[in-house]
Amino acid sequence: MTPAPIHFAGERLMLDPCGGLFWPARNTLIVSDLHLEKGSAAASRGNLLPPWDTRVTLDRLALMIRRFGPERVVALGDSFHDRNGAGRMQPADLARLRGMTATANFTWVLGNHDPTPPEGLDGESVEEHLAGPLLFRHQAITGAGAGEICGHHHPKAQIPTRGASVTRPCFVFDGKRLMLPALGAYTGGLDVRDPAIARLFPRGFRVFLLGRDRLFSFVFNRLAA
């Protein structure tokens, strides 16, 4: 596992191949779009997806917490798939998440899927989180100043290779804004060439695709409108 360092607003940040971001200077781990309990949300609508998604997402989170031992964890919103998500967790999963919130301070940035603080979980709930030169929010705001770190769009990129093209979730970065991939086990993705993402990076951007052991980096030039 080799994290990739980037320099952003004068800070050194580590992109993790699991999809999280670590800020060594503040000992902070940032993750986005966990969408916990998406499976049970679908089940309640009659679509009985395999029920292990929360467990798998927590596995990913636990792995990064073990690796970095952060003092603070910032969850960039859509941590639960809907507002009742926390209440539907299996007892084992809930105990595990509580264990994590006991070892690190959790900052729950609110997202469009979870606009209210998660019930029965420790940590502070905020609309935005400002730390030094970096501003953490769920959804990017057009025209925001440099230093915005966001999630929401579930970016993924498709890279032509010899043989076939490969599609993976990715970080998107243009020196002014950093967008995180979704960490949730059942989160699909939106292609970075989609106008919804591309217009947030008008001068082109670099993507970092998640790999098994490392990240793979490619440049996307400014896209024709």
């Binding site: 890279i159 032509p160 290779t161 010899r162 043989g163 076939a164 490969v166 993976r168 695709l209 790999g211 098994r212 052991d213 793979f216 980096s217 490619f218």
Partner: peptide
């Protein structure tokens, strides 16, 4: 071997 393909392209 998708990872290998990505590495190659990169």
């Amino acid at each position: 071997g998708e990872d290998a393909l990505l590495e190659d392209a990169e």
